[in-house]
Computed example of a mutant assay.
Amino acid sequence: MNRAYQTLRMVLLLISIVLYLPWIVSTDAALKHLVEWIHKCCGWIFVNHEIPTLYYPFSLFILLISGLIGYQATRIFRNTRKYIQLLMQYEVEMVDTIIQRFTKKYRIKVLLVDQAEPIVFTFGFRKPQILISTGMLQTVAEEELIAILEHERWHCKQGDPWKGFITSTFANSLFFFPIIGKLRDLYFLEKEILADQFAIQKSSKKVLVSALIKLASSSSHQTARAITPFVDGSLQDYRIDAIVSSDGKMPRMNGREWLLSGSALLVLLIIVFFLFQSLVPQHFMWIQWLPEHIRTICGW
C-alpha cells in the first residue's frame, strides 16, 4: 500500500510539472533566457531551427526517469548493505566440515551467522560470497546442504547478485511498464531453475526437492535483489514443479499488465515519432540507413 501511495504521488508530481511547465516558462524571466539559450545551442538540429514544445516535457520525462534509476539503485544498494551488516553482527566461527571442504575446494568464501531462521544467499559484486545461518544447518541434512551450496556456487560463478541488482533497478524504475516487472520475475525464476539444474548434477533431484520442501514454509529474506536467496517463497512451487516435470508451469502475464504496458509504450512512441519528425535528417547519418517507407512516414 505504501509503495502504491508513493507511486501515485510521483505520477501526480510528474503530471503537475508537465502542466505547469509552459506557464512557468512564459512567466519566469530566468527560464526565458534559459530557453532562448537552448534554442541557440540545440535549435540547429530541428526544422526551421525551432525546438518543438513537445521537446520540453519529453526532456523532463527523461530526466525524471534518470533520477528514478539513480534513486532505485541507491535504495537497493543501501538496503542490501544494511541487511548484510545486520546479519554480520552475529557471525560465528565456521565449524561445519562440509562447508570447510566446500570453501577449500572451490575457493568461495562462506560466512556463518548465528540465526535460528534458515537463511542462505549469495551476495557481492566483485567477488561473490555465500552467507548461511546456523538455523539452515540445523534444518537440512548433509546431502541437502551440499545441494544448496552447489546451487549458490552457480550464482557465484554467474555473478548473479550484480545482474539481479541491475535488473531490479531498471524494473523498479520503469514501474509504468508492468510487463517489465513480470519479465524481471521470469528472469529470476529462470536463474533459480538453472542453478537448481546445476545442483542436481552434483547431487540428485530427490535431495534438492527435499530441501525445497523443508524450506517451503520459511519466509523470504530478500530485502533487495542484490542478493540471490535460496529461500524465495514466491518461486518455490515453480522451482519444484520444474525439477519433477520437464514441462513445469511458469507464471503468466495477465491482460491488465499487457494493456497498461502497451498503452504506455504507445504514448511514448507517439511522442518520439513527433519529435523525430522535427529533426533535420541531414544532421543525422543514421536516418539515411532507415527503410525508405519509414523515412516517408516521418517526412524525411
Rank of each mutant, 00 (worst) to 15 (best):
S168P: 08
E93V: 07
A211D: 06
S168T: 04
I213R: 07
E117H: 01
L131Y: 05
V18K: 02
L64W: 05
G255D: 14
L19N: 00
P281H: 01
R153V: 09
L14T: 00
M88E: 11
K182G: 15
W286M: 11
F77E: 13
R256V: 15
S168E: 09
L149I: 03
V25L: 10
F177Y: 07
H155W: 10
V47L: 03
L183M: 13
F177L: 11
E144W: 06
L194A: 11
F46H: 00
F230Q: 01
T169R: 03
L12A: 14
K249N: 15
T228M: 15
L266E: 14
N2R: 10
F123C: 01
W300C: 02
D232W: 08
R225N: 14
T27N: 09
L174I: 06
F46A: 08
I227H: 02
S59G: 10
F276W: 00
Y56Q: 00
A4P: 10
V140Q: 00
P178W: 10
D96A: 09
Y71V: 02
H221V: 08
E152Y: 01
V113R: 01
F61V: 03
A211Y: 05
K206H: 15
D28A: 06
I17F: 12
D96T: 01
Q282W: 07
Y20E: 00
Q197T: 04
A199S: 11
T167R: 09
K82I: 12
V207K: 03
A4F: 11
Q100Y: 09
D160W: 07
N254W: 15
A264R: 03
S173D: 01
T169M: 12
V92C: 07
H49G: 13
D28H: 02
C156Y: 08
V207E: 03
H283S: 09
L215F: 08
A141W: 07
P118D: 07
V47W: 04
E257P: 14
T122A: 03
C41G: 08
A147E: 07
I17P: 04
D237K: 01
D241E: 14
S16C: 11
V140A: 04
T296K: 11
E257N: 12
G70L: 12
L145M: 08
D96G: 05
E144D: 09
L174P: 05
L8Y: 09
R75H: 11
S245F: 13
V272R: 05
Q201M: 15
Y20V: 05
A264D: 09
I243H: 13
P57I: 02
I51Y: 00
L34V: 02
L235Q: 06
T296P: 12
K249C: 13
Q222Y: 11
D114C: 03
W258E: 10
M10W: 12
W162V: 08
T7Q: 15
Y71I: 02
L19I: 05
V47E: 05
L12I: 08
S210P: 08
I200E: 09
I243D: 13
V207D: 04
T296N: 12
D232P: 09
L63M: 12
